[in-house]
Structure formats: C-alpha cells, structure tokens
C-alpha cells in the first residue's frame, strides 16, 4: 500500500465514529438491549400476539401490493422519461421526486382528502362501491405514493445507458418489439429493478406518517406495525413497544442486507456488460 501523505485522518475519522456512535449505534443498541432484556418467553408472547400478527399481515400485504404497483408504473414511468421526448417531460421528471420532498404528514392528509368519501377521488370511487380511505386499500395508496421514486430512480440510469446496438442487433434478427423487450431489455433491467423493488418494499414496511391519516387505524384490520409500536408507547407499555419495534428493526436489517446483495450483483452485472 502507498504511504498516505494526506492529513486529517484522526480528526475526520474521530468525528465520524463519534457521530455515528452517538447518533446511530447507541440508540439502536439501547433498543436491542431493552428488547433482549425481556427474555425469550415474554418476547415471543408479545411479538406473536394476535394483534401484532394482524399488524404484520396488513403491513406486509399492503407493502407487497404497493411494490407490485410501483414495479409496473415505475418501470413505465422510467421508460417514458428516458425513451420519449414530449412537451413537459422535464416537469414530470422533476415531479417524480415529490414523494421524497413532501413531508409524510402532508402527503397523509392530502391523500386522505382525495380519497375520503367526499373527496375528488373518493366520491367517484364510492359510486362503484370502492372505499379507499380508512381501509387497507388506503394504506396501499399511501405506500404507493411514498415509495414511487425508488424504482423510477434505480431503473432510469440503466435504461439511459442501454446500448442501442443490442436492440438493433435483435431487430435485424427479426425480433418483434415485445420479444426484444422480454428477451433483451428486461433481463438487462432486472438487477436494477430488483434493487429498486427491495428499497421500495423496505420503505413501505417502515412508513408511518403518510399512512396513519388514511388508514383508519382499527386494531386487527387497518393498524400497521409502526402504529402499534406508537400505541404501546402511549400506553406506557415500553417493553411491548421495544419488542415490536425490534421486529421492525430486524426486518429493516434483513432488507438492508438483501438490498446490498442485489445492488452488488447489479453492479457486477453492469460492470460486465
């Protein structure tokens, strides 16, 4: 290894480790220690209570639904933004980031206003007997909104860098557009799509602010796990809050590992091609 002549290692690394230790590691360690202090029997009975399990179910199912929607719509949006030029495309491109920039509480009340029975969308949908606000569907809508940018922003750069020669070669061999998309383009997008999917899914699992306004928050049916943690805190049941929060934390760590693995694979894939 080359001898490093640059100064500032001890200062910059010191600041970094101190900050990460105090701001990130210490609180998470405290939460894990608190949850671990419960003992396996109590811990299991809290995290496997029927209300907690119902909250996992509605959270995971809604997140799956929202991610599936974002897979289709996000891919279409990324495709339109990279392949087609039409008046206003720059505006659309900028607006994709709105769900990241708009505070979740603001998104929550405005989606609720839209989808409530007297809202712009809710009044139309209720004609068809579809209720969105205060149902699991509402949770899904909120998750769709907050996690939309992930897939668009991971797929977009890959689509931009796609070599036109690959398509031309496939076209000269007589492939139809749909075949070329399926056999040539989609496989090239898959690693980025998977990485975007896992980011989008992870975000949906942890989302709180946008959901609690539109969800209805009925135990056993429209109560997400993050809200259950919050309710246990308000009841001063700190042990239950720690235990259920630790489930969310462990899930987040698993998702982080999966995402990193997928992204490492995506990187190798693009590096090779």
């Amino acid at each position: 290894m080359r001898r490093n002549v640059l100064p500032g290692l001890s200062l910059s690394l010191g600041v970094t480790l101190f900050y990460v230790g105090l701001i990130v590691v210490l609180p998470l360690a405290a939460l894990i220690i608190k949850a671990a202090s419960l003992g396996p029997v109590d811990y299991w009975s809290i995290i496997s209570s029927s209300r907690a399990v119902a909250s996992y179910r509605v959270t995971v199912l809604s997140a799956l639904g929202a991610t599936a929607f974002n897979l289709v719509f996000g891919l279409a949006l990324a495709w339109v933004l990279t392949r087609y030029r039409f008046p206003g495309w720059r505006l659309i491109d900028a607006m994709v980031d709105l769900p990241f920039a708009l505070p979740t509480a603001v998104a929550g009340i405005s989606l609720t206003a839209l989808f409530a029975n007297n809202g712009w969308f809710g009044s139309v949908l209720s004609e068809f007997g579809i209720k969105v606000a205060y149902t699991p569907l509402g949770i899904m809508v909120a998750m769709c909104f907050t996690s939309l940018p992930f897939i668009v922003r991971t797929v977009q750069p890959v689509l931009e860098d796609l070599d036109p020669a690959l398509e031309e070669a496939a076209q000269s061999l007589g492939g139809s557009d749909w075949t070329i998309f399926r056999k040539v383009i989609f496989p090239l997008l898959t690693p980025a799509l998977l990485a975007g999917l896992s980011l989008s899914f992870a975000r949906s699992l942890g989302e709180f602010g946008a959901i609690i306004f539109i969800a209805g928050n009925q135990p056993m049916s429209t109560e997400i796990t993050a809200l259950l943690v919050f309710i246990r805190l308000e009841e001063y049941d700190y042990q239950a809050a720690a235990a259920i929060a630790s489930v969310l934390l462990i899930t987040a760590f698993v998702m982080l590992a999966v995402t990193n693995l997928l992204q490492a694979r995506a990187l190798r894939y693009t590096a090779r091609s």
Binding site: P27, L28, A30, G206, A226, V229, F230, A242, L248
Partner: peptide, 14 residues
Amino acid sequence: SISPIVAGVAYLFV
C-alpha cells in the same frame, strides 16, 4: 432503511 418510529423508540431507551 429504518422506520422513523423505530428511531424515535430507540431514542426513548437512551
């Protein structure tokens, strides 16, 4: 990648 609620709870335990 962590739910903001989990972050808040973690700070309570510090």
